[in-house]
């Protein structure tokens, strides 16, 4: 009897100690995973858990994205996960995505996992036509994507039709030419054969080096109105803020590099960009919603921080990571030579 009471007591105290949890689904560019998240967890707790699970150390480029009322939002690190305006039906779903882009992929992306996630995200943006890519660059990119996936070209393995099921080119590009799928495959394969000897990480890096030269790469666009009520697009990227004609997302009418901006602020729906040079006019605009203003400001702060950080010496952590990556690369090369 006493034993039964004791065991019941310990069971209830154990039960009381267990924290309340909820299920979270995280969707990355190539995987889905579920976690039990404590109700009290902040954004950072969940974000760190995801990064640890992925083995990702270059965390500063990434965020957990969700959609609220048709607009994109990112989980705040210092706010409780459940205090965000996320649909509370379980599993609560977030997309683990790159939020900020490097200025130079080759210099800044160190770990293979970071490069791979960027490669997958940028490839999707190009195929979904979120990033404009000219036809010739699309074919070259496709050939690197094939090298990354299939390894070296081997005509005895990669026979006619081997790319038939692959999505390799934006539809817009395909529609510009009177070419059959076989003709596209032939052209892509001819370039794929040129990449012989490139490992997956190298092919993905070549892909990113080409993609980063396209005008829309890494730009977040927002519809705004200037003080006269004219519709414009605001672009936020690694280099600064850009103002576009809504008909032309490729070439900005004006740009404000981060090092030439004194201050960015908003009150209610009005945004103000104050340039450092007092001779240049202050630029004021309105966005559609307060929520969008918050996102614009978040992206400005994050991109500005990274812009400043790039212009200082690497932190110890990054130095160490780069040294490790160099060692790893040398080791892989030795291995390949040996084989």
């Amino acid at each position: 009897m006493a034993g039964a009471i004791a065991s019941r007591m310990s069971f209830t105290s154990l039960k009381r100690k267990q924290p309340k949890t909820f299920t979270v689904r995280i969707i990355t560019m190539d995987a889905e995973m579920e976690f039990n998240c404590e109700v009290k967890w902040k954004g950072k707790d969940l974000f760190d858990l995801v990064c640890r699970t992925l083995g990702l150390r270059e965390t500063w480029f990434f965020g957990l994205q969700y959609t609220v009322k048709d607009s994109v939002a990112w989980l705040k690190m210092d706010k409780k996960v459940l205090d965000h305006d996320v649909p509370k039906d379980e599993p609560v779903t977030f997309h683990f995505l790159a939020k900020f882009y490097p200025e130079n992929v080759e210099e800044e992306l160190v770990q293979d996992i970071t490069q791979h996630l960027f490669f997958l995200q940028v490839k999707k943006q190009i195929l979904d036509e979120k990033i404009y890519c000219p036809p010739e660059a699309s074919v070259l990119l496709a050939s690197y994507a094939v090298q990354a996936k299939y390894g070296d070209y081997d005509p005895s393995v990669h026979k006619r039709g081997f790319l038939a099921e692959e999505e390799l080119l934006p539809k817009r590009v395909i529609n510009l030419y009177q070419m059959t799928p076989e003709m596209w495959e032939e052209r892509i394969t001819a370039w794929y054969a040129e990449h012989r000897g490139r490992m997956r990480d190298e092919a993905e890096m070549e892909y990113l080096k080409i993609a980063q030269d396209t005008e829309m790469y890494g730009v977040n666009y927002f519809l705004i109105r200037n003080k006269k009520g004219t519709e414009l697009l605001l672009g936020v990227d690694a280099l600064g803020l850009h103002i576009y004609d809504p008909e032309n997302k490729l070439t900005p009418k004006t740009s404000f590099p981060w090092n030439e901006i004194r201050n960015i602020s908003y009150s209610d729906k009005e945004f103000t960009i104050k340039p450092l040079d007092k001779k240049i006019d202050v630029f004021k605009f309105n966005s559609s919603k307060l929520r969008v203003n918050k996102l614009i400001l978040q992206l400005c702060i994050g991109n500005h921080d990274l812009f400043m950080r790039r212009r200082k010496a690497d932190s110890l952590e990054v130095q160490q990571m780069k040294a490790q990556a160099r060692e790893e690369k040398a080791r892989k090369q030795m291995e390949r030579q040996r084989l």
Binding site: P135, E136, A137, V139, L140, N175, L176, Y177, Q178, M179, M183, R187, W191, E194, H195, R196, G197, R198, I210
Partner: peptide, 27 residues
């Protein structure tokens, strides 16, 4: 065999030329 050296712009020009004969008149 060492990988054949490719210059990016030369590659793009070559691809552009190979696609051009098949361009839609509207394109």
């Amino acid at each position: 065999n060492p990988p054949k050296f490719l210059t990016y712009h030369k590659a793009l020009a070559e691809i552009r030329n190979s696609l051009q004969p098949f361009a839609n008149s509207s394109g």
